[in-house]
Design a protein around this nucleic acid. Structure first.
Length: 720
DNA sequence: CAGGGTTCTT
DNA sequence: AAGAACC
């Protein structure tokens, strides 16, 4: 506290601001504040959903409510419902550990975030329909600045002075808590209760809320009473809650690295930091950071609730045990790009930057640490993403990604990747004057955005739409009915939620409008159009197992082609050529441009690829072909490749490779692939031959959760 | 740190 | 482009 005074002298402006919030440790400041004009203190809400992913799955399938449920990503349980927690299962527990604790636990794959992302934005929209200042923190937390709402109610309620608190109050030992001493926080607690009630009635979600005078405090206090409750923190108890933290790491804003550096200074507890001389701290962290840290330690946080708006980047990633061949990299990148482009397309904005990130395995030292390379996205490609079905874009982005990849992993090098991430950023809204961040306003303006970028646009609409409809009406049928799962009583049953495509499900509130097929088919506009149901309806009019979502995006001729028996019968199948049934993953790649674009398009693509070529090296496919690789004059081979599938015996070039895709790759990549293929000469062609190679991934890949994207390699390896 | 995001700062 | 933070 002695410090506080000193600091105030040192930096007037900073501290003026700090005290506006009524600082606990500085009585003088606290008392002085209320005299200023305007609201003496803000009222901030922090919402934190209970076991979010698990909740979403339980909404999708209410039967899961009664069983111990875990959400599985790769080898860990990222979250679980409270039934499971009662049995000792915790967040971020390994599947093995969870199995020991609770053998009967039901697992749902949670690697595909589509449904969580959707629900997350629905909640944010709901909050936005009450108050414009909403800031997201991850998928399951929101800050809301309700100061203005409170002030308004304060005026309305002025006469009837019957203030009270809803929910808990943080300090149970505090003497007499008079609500009238804290009218704003009291009103805030009522608003919090109303919003939580709205969440529940309109979206079926439960969660906790914290009510306090700044974000730091609201967040800290929200978790005091855990499932589905709310807690208000009064100014006189700020010191208590800060002291209650078990270590500096618990202070939001102090991460691992910062905690380490603080520890190096001998600071471990919050109190240590409070008492540590600011000047010494400045030496280590620099002025602004030092001040911020000191403030946090005493519960001061003047950071505003910054409206989040539409996301600034979209990314898609996958982690795995190991990827060490260029071909696998290629396949994985494409797989990721397909879904990312789809999401980007739905967003409607045009990305200006593409980034590829990898994580390499290294036993020593940094197991964490990613490397990335980024580049601008040529305009014509960006336009494809937004205007076309997006598939053309994937074809153009794959070579782009490979080039970035080889800026990190040189051609001949051995490597061992454990993660790949693709990311679009620098998202540009068409036609709208978008100022920097926080200019969410453009998303409220209907019509400024071409597509459904307006994540937050029809806020009140959404809220009303969803109201009255018990949300669980749209729980979907899992392919494995939970009932059977339960009856079987098998230990630890993995339920993979069959998300029949519709990765577009994001923002499906807007879906109907732009989905002619669905719109025409939906008999009751009142009824929620659940993505799954929608697909079911559409599906029976399509070739077996064709993803309707994808299908309807295709040009008409292609749709016809797909529907024709000629095509259906010639489709490849993974296991055996005998199988007449077409798997979704196979169909999926049909939508890729490689299979269907006309030769004119090919020309464009080639030009595009050439244009992409950085000045440093020629990427022209037909020239500068590396020595030792077979020379197939572009057009011809490509034509040949599309019309008939060249057999491996025809040339050195593997017959099961899509020449078109191949031709779009940078020459060095081509060469490497060629050399890889040469080594496994007799292998080639039959899909089964590649099985072993991907086998390590075959089961734990996203496919289960996503219901798609396995076997993209069919694009490159066609049936013999 | 796991896993799949996301934002902000350096 | 990397690091750090958050969930």
């Amino acid at each position: 506290m002695a410090n506080s005074e000193d600091e105030m002298d040192e930096d007037e402006t900073e501290w003026k601001n700090s005290f506006v919030d009524s600082v606990p440790l500085s009585p003088a400041a606290a008392s002085g504040v209320n005299k200023t004009s305007g609201p003496a203190h803000k009222v901030i809400l922090h919402f934190d959903l209970d076991c979010f992913y698990a909740q979403v799955e339980m909404i999708r399938n209410p039967a899961l409510r009664e069983v111990p449920l875990g959400i599985q990503q790769k080898y860990i349980i990222v979250t679980c419902n409270y039934v499971a927690r009662d049995q000792g299962v915790g967040k971020l527990m390994s599947v093995t550990d969870a199995k020991e604790k609770c053998p009967q636990m039901v697992l749902v794959k949670g690697e595909d975030l589509t449904h969580y992302r959707e629900m997350s934005y629905k909640l944010t929209e709901l909050l936005l329909s009450y108050c414009p200042l909403v800031e997201r923190l991850g998928f399951d937390e929101n800050f809301v600045d309700i100061t203005q709402m409170v002030e308004r109610r304060l005026k309305e309620t002025q006469e009837s002075n019957n203030f009270s608190f809803k929910g808990h109050i943080y300090n149970p030992y505090s003497a007499d808590v008079e609500a009238s001493d804290h009218p704003r926080l009291a009103l805030g607690s009522h608003i919090a209760a109303e919003l939580r009630e709205a969440m529940h009635s309109k979206l079926g979600l439960t969660g906790c809320a914290g009510i306090a005078t700044n974000k730091l405090l609201a967040k800290l206090v929200s978790g005091t009473f855990k499932p589905n409750q709310q807690t208000t923190l009064l100014p006189e108890n700020v010191g208590d809650i800060m002291d209650s933290l078990s270590g500096l790491r618990k202070v939001p804003g102090v991460g691992h690295q910062t905690a380490k550096r603080l520890k190096a200074l001998g600071l471990v507890s919050v109190k240590d930091l409070q008492l540590f001389p600011l000047n010494d701290l400045v030496r280590e962290f620099g002025g602004p950071s030092a001040q911020r840290l000191k403030n946090l330690a005493v519960g001061v946080d003047e950071s505003p609730v910054a409206p989040t708006g539409a996301p600034q980047s979209l990314s898609d990633e996958d982690s795995f045990k190991k990827i060490s061949s260029t071909k696998e990299v290629l396949e994985k990148i494409e797989e990721l790009l397909i879904s990312l482009v789809e999401r980007m397309h739905k967003d409607g904005r045009q990305p200006q930057t593409f980034r590829l990130t990898i994580r390499r395995y290294s036993p020593t030292n940094k197991w964490f640490s990613r490397e990335s390379r980024q580049c601008p996205i040529p305009n014509h490609i960006g336009q494809k993403i937004t205007s076309d079905s997006g598939d053309d874009a994937v074809g153009l982005l794959v070579p782009l990604a490979m080039k970035l990849y080889h800026k990190m992993v040189a051609i001949g090098d051995a490597f061992h990747l454990t993660l790949i991430n693709v990311c679009f950023s620098n998202l540009q809204t068409r036609g709208a004057a978008v100022s920097g961040k926080g200019s969410i306003t453009s998303f409220f303006t209907l019509g400024t955005c071409p597509r459904k970028t307006q994540i937050f646009s029809q806020q009140s609409q959404v809220a009303q739409d969803a109201s009255s409809q018990s949300v669980d009406t749209h729980c979907m049928d899992l392919q494995v009915s939970t009932r059977s799962v339960i009856t079987q009583h098998t230990s630890l049953t993995a339920v993979t939620t069959k998300s029949p495509r519709s990765s577009e499900a994001a923002l499906h509130c807007f879906k109907r409008k732009q989905s002619p097929v669905v719109a025409a088919e939906d008999p009751s506009p009142q009824t929620r159009s659940d993505p799954e149901e929608t697909n079911v309806m559409v599906t029976h009019r399509l070739p077996p197992n064709v993803d309707p979502e994808v299908f309807r995006l295709l040009p008409e001729e292609i749709q016809k082609e797909l529907s024709s028996p000629a095509y259906t019968n010639s489709l490849p199948s993974t296991s055996a050529s005998s199988s007449a049934v077409v798997d979704v993953p196979h169909i999926r790649q049909i939508k890729s441009p490689q299979s269907f674009t006309d030769s004119q398009n090919i020309k464009n693509i080639r030009e595009a690829v050439n244009r992409l070529a950085p000045s440093d090296r020629p990427t022209t496919v037909n020239r500068h072909r590396p020595a030792g690789t077979s020379e197939f004059p572009g057009e011809n081979v490509i034509e040949e490749g599309r019309m008939s599938f060249p057999r491996s015996s025809d040339c050195e070039f593997p017959g099961d490779v899509d020449p078109k895709v191949f031709s779009e790759l940078p020459p060095d990549v081509q060469r490497e692939l060629m050399s890889e293929w040469k080594q496994q000469k007799p292998v080639l062609k039959t899909p089964s031959s590649r099985k072993p190679e991907r086998s390590s991934m075959a089961k734990d890949r996203k496919a289960a959760g996503k219901g798609s994207q396995a076997n993209n390699l069919f694009k490159y390896f066609k049936p013999g």
